[in-house]
C-alpha cells in the first residue's frame, strides 16, 4: 500500500543511484549528537551506544506527545490502539522495505529525502521557525528515543 508521497521518495533514491563513490555529510545541530548521512539516504550508525528497546519504541510511536507516528501511519501490529491516520504510507511491513539506516534518516530529518514532506523531523533544533518557547532548542525525540523507535520498526514485517 504505497501513497503518492512514496513516489517522491522513490525518485530521490533513483537519482542517488546514479552517483558512484559514497558521499558522507556530517551534521551537527545545536545541543544534538553529530551524525553522518551517507549518499543522502541513510544514517547507518546508531545515535547512541545503548541498543534501542522495541517495547519502549512501540509506546513512543503511539504516544501523542512523543512520536505520535499513528497520527499519519497505519501499523497493523498496533491495532489495539485506536485512530491510525492515513497520511503517510502504512508501516506494517516497513522492515521489509527499508534498511535501519534509511529508517533512521526518515526519523532524524525526512526533509533530506523529500524537502516538501509533511512528516516532522524528530531530531532537529535548527532551521525551524517560531518554535514555542518551551520546545526551543529541543528535538521532538531524544537520540535514545529515536533508537527505541527504530528497534520497534525493525520488528515490523507483514509476514510475521
Amino acid at each position: 500500500m504505497r501513497t503518492a508521497g512514496l513516489v517522491a521518495g522513490g525518485v530521490a533514491l533513483a537519482l542517488l543511484a546514479q552517483g558512484a563513490a559514497a558521499e558522507v555529510t556530517k551534521v551537527q545541530e545545536k545541543g544534538l549528537k553529530p551524525y553522518e548521512i551517507v549518499d543522502g539516504h541513510t544514517i547507518p550508525k546508531p545515535l547512541t551506544d545503548k541498543p534501542g528497546d522495541p517495547k519502549r519504541g512501540a509506546k513512543l510511536v503511539v504516544t501523542r506527545k512523543k512520536g505520535n507516528c499513528l497520527a499519519c501511519h497505519k501499523i497493523q501490529q498496533l491495532n489495539d490502539f485506536p485512530f491510525h491516520g492515513n497520511i503517510g504510507p502504512e508501516l506494517t511491513d516497513v522492515a521489509s522495505n527499508l534498511t535501519e539506516g534509511e529508517m533512521r534518516l526518515r526519523l532524524v530529518n525526512p526533509k533530506v529525502v523529500n524537502p516538501d514532506t509533511i512528516m516532522p523531523a524528530f531530531y532537529r533544533t535548527e532551521g525551524l521557525h517560531r518554535v514555542m518557547k518551551k520546545f526551543q532548542g529541543k528535538p521532538v525525540l531524544t537520540d535514545q528515543e529515536i533508537e527505541d523507535i527504530i528497534a520497534f520498526l525493525k520488528t515490523l514485517k507483514a509476514s510475521q
Binding site: 501523542r64 499513528l70 491516520g85 492515513n86 516532522p120 525551524l128 521557525h129 514555542m132 529541543k138
Partner: peptide
C-alpha cells in the same frame, strides 16, 4: 513550529485524509 509544518501541508496536500 517544532513540528515544522505549514498550513498547506495539512489543508492543501492532505484534505480527505485522517490525521489520527
Amino acid at each position: 513550529g517544532q513540528l515544522d509544518m505549514a498550513c498547506k501541508h495539512c489543508h492543501i496536500d492532505f484534505p480527505g485524509q485522517y490525521i489520527r
